[in-house]
Design a protein around this nucleic acid. Structure first.
Length: 241
DNA sequence: AACCAGGACGTGA
DNA sequence: TCACGTCATGGT
């Protein structure tokens, strides 16, 4: 049992002990091999991570870009569907910002249809692609990212954390669901407060931010998918005292 | 057959 | 700020 009084940190340790490193973005290896789907092991309805424990990715430009595409595609959709859309785009070799913009709108929509909201996501993807190119290799500021149509709070933080490796904690619906169920925050807590709660209780460490959010998602998939949320969650017992 | 998925936007209090 | 309707396919 951890001796720390820091509940946020204790939960992180518990989750990591339970599930281990998750391995999120990026999905594709743009240097050589394509992803072999048979290598992806099942993990609670989704697919197993791609490079668990490696927090140095993405390394190259198209990999950074791929993560950005993924953050838009997965909005309010399971990662499994977003992943399919991403693989569809990869088959056309358009996971490259310049080539992506050459793709006609109808083909684009067709490729990403499986991820839902394809009309607006097609627009969002183009917008964020133009923004990415305009950066010219620079790391975007959060306030500039948020002005891009289709990039809200969570997506902006996801891009900064998972594409640019900047220490911005990502809060999502699962985070709110779990931590309000545990009685740590209110159900109607807003994004900024919840994000601040994590960032003020954790070392400013990209690897921890990266892993913690992924662990929250994995935990939520197991115990917070259907109502009543958190019914069989063992966390309340584990973090007692 | 409902309900949910690694949300964001536009609008009107 | 905050609440609400809208966007849409797919899995369970």
């Amino acid at each position: 049992m951890s001796k720390s009084k820091n509940i946020i940190l204790r939960i992180y340790r518990e989750l990591f002990n339970q599930y281990g490193p998750q391995g999120w973005w990026p999905l594709l290896n743009h240097e050589k091999i394509m992803v072999d789907k048979s290598d992806l092991m099942e993990k609670s309805g989704s697919l197993r991570g791609y490079h668990p424990g490696n927090y140095d990715l993405p390394l190259e430009r198209n990999q950074v870009y791929e993560v950005i595409l993924g953050t838009i595609l997965t909005q309010n959709t399971s990662w499994l569907q977003a992943e399919k859309a991403l693989l569809n785009l990869d088959e056309l070799n358009v996971i490259n910002p310049e080539k992506f913009l050459e793709l006609d709108l109808e083909t684009l929509k067709k490729q990403i249809k499986c991820a839902g909201f394809f009309n607006q996501k097609a627009i969002y993807l183009r917008e964020v692609t133009k923004f990415f190119i305009s950066l010219n290799g620079q790391i975007p500021r959060r306030k500039d990212l948020i002005t891009v149509k289709g990039v809200g709070n969570e997506t902006a933080d996801s891009i900064l954390l998972y594409a640019y490796k900047k220490p911005e904690f990502v809060v999502d619906a699962y985070t709110k669901r779990i931590f309000s169920h545990l009685g740590i925050v209110k159900e109607n807590v807003n994004y900024r407060s919840l994000k601040e709660l994590f960032e003020s209780n954790l070392p400013k460490d990209v690897a921890i931010y990266n892993e913690y959010h992924a662990l929250i998602v994995e935990h939520a998939k197991r115990y917070y998918q259907k109502n009543p949320y958190g019914k069989d969650d063992p966390l309340p017992q584990m973090i007692k005292y």
